[in-house]
Each structure stands twice: as structure tokens, then as C-alpha cells.
Design a protein around this nucleic acid. Structure first.
Lengths: 167, 167
DNA sequence: ATAAACTTTCAATTTTTTCTGAAAGTTTAA
DNA sequence: TTAAACTTTCAGAAAAAATTGAAAGTTTAT
């Protein structure tokens, strides 16, 4: 496999994985492109490399920035903006985990709390709803806490966590 | 909040969460409905409860069965089939984690291995591609292993894992 | 103040995904 | 073996999501 083929394969694989996990393909591909780039890229360069429109590029770059995994770089003497992504995989994973937790998991935990706190009218249906949503709430809360514990160990969190789990 | 409202809220929240994570809304909602049901439900009952068509119900039930989180129940003397989901949240999470790993993560790990193994032609671009995809590969492999370690501790894996991580 | 260089926004379009419903298929009872 | 009861399949329709491209907006240099 040559460079060009490998690069395309990486970008397309990353795009598909994104889709499978509810992330816009273009967004995932822009991130992939920046991730393997040796230097920051301009909007124009991204558009050309991925064959996507200016609007699409602009929108998805903004999203990546909101997610905290891409940043604007200003190059002195240059009018246009350049973009890079977090290059350290562990930092990247940490950011993504925290953001998905904050945006998607925590709101659900809150709702599960509400639902499992309804008044128990002693009917079987209500009892089951309370029991099951409470179990789900507790699991989600513990899993979320665990994720944060794993990811919050600074520097090489993954190896540290794995070692603890192996023991 | 009354039972009906709480039930609807749970089903719709679960559907939305599914969507956010790349899972079909109907599939998530069927699972949610079974999860809080006090007894197995027939296709007819599911269709009525969720206001979805027979085709949709049939297709998504089959998917849930393929995922290993819903099973058919045959009630003696009854012609039609009934369905239940895994009621234990920890078992449920274990199943889902293993399936997503097997279907979605492991194939990507394999591809990352291929890409990071291309011949190093000493250009900066190639070196960067290899370096970054290798880092991603290693992270994905370790994270996947970690997930299995967590989830494979039988019985109350989540608390056990959390305790290890806290130490 | 003006214009060039660049970015953002968003209505319209395209693509993808999901859903429906009815025909075809299967199983069971008599 | 027939027909009733039920499930699956899948072409077409509908809905949702992604994408385009051009107009509007912003910034900077002169």
C-alpha cells in the first residue's frame, strides 16, 4: 500500500466509524485529515483534499472547535486561518470522552433520576418502571464516574488504568 | 409526573440517546419498552404501544435479537411470539459493549494495523501517517482490552472495576 | 472609505436512512 | 390439504440528515 492509498483509507475509515457512532462523516474526515497532516491546513486545502464544499467545511470546523479538538492557528503575515487538531491520541480521547459525557450522558442521567423518582402508586407497572430506571440511572452514573476516573489520570491514563484493572 | 408520562419520557429519551449514538430510534424504543414491561410483549402490542408499523417492528426486533439483547419467548398454547429483553442492566451493558467492540472497534483496529504497517519511504508525510495511525491503533487496542477486562469480571463488574480504579 | 480576502450563514437540493403496508412466506390446527 | 394466524420481506414513500453554493458578513490593508 502506498502513501496516497493508505491516507485515503484512513480518512474514509475514520469517516465511517464516525457515522456508526453518530458523528457526521465530514466532521470525522476533517479531523482525520488534520490528524495525519504535518502542518496546519487552511479551509481551502481541506475543501480540496476532501472534495467538500466551503459551507460544509466551515460548519464542521466550527463544530470540531466547539468540541475542543480542533483549533484555529493564526500565521503572521497570512490573512487566512489555519487549523490543527490535537495530535496526542490520549488527549484527543480524553476530550471526546468528556464532551460526550457532558453533552449526551449527563443529561440522560438527570432524566433517569427524574423518572425513577416518580411517586410509587404500588401498581406493578409503576414499580417496574421505577426499579428499572433506577438501575439504569445507577449504572450510568457509576460508568460515567469510572470513565472520568480513567481519563482524569494525567499522562498515560490508559496504561495506568489498565494496570489497575489487571491486578 | 404520572406513570404514563414517565413511561413515555423514558421511551423517548432512550430513543434519542440511541440516535445520538448511531442506533435506530425504533430499535432503541422497542428495547426501552421491553425493559420496563412487567411481561413479554407480542409484536402487536409493541406496534400499538410505539405506534410503528408491523414491518418496522419485525425488522428491529430481529436486529435486537441479532445483538443478543432481546429474545423470543414461546408461550404454550399461544400461536404468536412474545419478546423480552435482558432485564439486568449490567448484563445488558456487557452485551452491548462486547457487540459494539466486535462489530465496530475490532475491524477498525485491524485496518489501523494495516495502515500503520505501510512501507516507510522516509518522507515526512509517510512518517507522520505511520506515527499517528500507530498511536491510534495502540490506544484503540488498549482501550478495547480495558473494556473487556472491566466487563468480563462476572457479577457486579462495574463496582469491582470502580474500586480498583479508585485505589 | 473602499476594496480585496476571507468566513459564515442558510434556503434549496441531494443523499441517506427510516418507515410503511401489502404481498409472499411460514407454521399450526383441524 | 386447507385455511387461519401469524411473521418476514422489500419496493416505494416519507422523513431526516448532510451538503452545496451563493449572498451576506467580517476583517484587514491601503
Amino acid at each position: 500500500m502506498q502513501y496516497k492509498e493508505a491516507k485515503d483509507k484512513f480518512i474514509s475509515t475514520w469517516g465511517s466509524l464516525g457515522t456508526l457512532w453518530g458523528i457526521n462523516k465530514a466532521m470525522a474526515q476533517i479531523q482525520a485529515l488534520l490528524f495525519i497532516s504535518t502542518k496546519p491546513l487552511s479551509m481551502e486545502e481541506i475543501m480540496v483534499a476532501l472534495k467538500i464544499s466551503r459551507g460544509n467545511t466551515s460548519t464542521n470546523l466550527r463544530q470540531l472547535i466547539d468540541w475542543g479538538i480542533v483549533s484555529k492557528i493564526l500565521i503572521t503575515g497570512e490573512r487566512k486561518e489555519y487549523f490543527t487538531t490535537e495530535k496526542d491520541v490520549q488527549e484527543l480521547a480524553r476530550h471526546i470522552a468528556k464532551e460526550r459525557s457532558r453533552r449526551e450522558i449527563q443529561p440522560v442521567i438527570k432524566i433517569l433520576k427524574e423518572i425513577s423518582s416518580i411517586k410509587d402508586d404500588k401498581t406493578d407497572n409503576t414499580k417496574e418502571l421505577i426499579k428499572q430506571t433506577k438501575a439504569l440511572h445507577d449504572l450510568a452514573e457509576t460508568a460515567d464516574l469510572m470513565l472520568h476516573k480513567i481519563v482524569n489520570q494525567e499522562q498515560n491514563w490508559i496504561t495506568k488504568s489498565l494496570l489497575k484493572l489487571i491486578k
